[in-house]
């Protein structure tokens, strides 16, 4: 696959950007997010996070046989589920 392939469409993060992050030695989705900005746009990682996790896992597997059972966690999901205007919350109650 071309390294110019876009993984995160919201923030224009390419496959090459992620590969670079992995080459440095990072192996968690939280770190990939912070290093590239992946998953910080309007979709909040709904499109790109699984790809980032898969790339982290593949990198871990090449680190050595002891990493074969490694688990990659998703990054923390941030509310709201979809972008929502402040006005809705200004009319709302403090608890659901």
């Amino acid at each position: 696959m071309s390294t110019k392939a876009i993984v995160c469409r919201c923030e224009d993060v390419t496959l090459a950007d992620i590969q670079h992050t992995l080459e440095i030695g990072y192996r968690t989705v939280e770190e990939v997010k912070r290093y590239t900005g992946l998953g910080t746009g309007p979709c909040e990682g709904k499109e790109c996070m699984a790809q980032a996790a898969r790339l982290c896992l593949m990198a871990l597997r090449t680190d050595g046989p002891d990493k074969n059972d490694a688990v990659v966690e998703p990054f923390t999901s941030r509310p709201p589920v979809q972008p929502a205007p402040l006005g809705i919350f200004a009319r709302g109650d403090e608890e659901p």
């Binding site: 972008p83 402040l86 200004a90």
Partner: peptide, 15 residues
């Protein structure tokens, strides 16, 4: 929204 009424339409991305 009380202080900046125009922000009523501004969308929250994440908290």
């Amino acid at each position: 929204v009380s202080l900046v009424p125009r922000f009523a339409d501004l969308k929250i991305l994440r908290q």
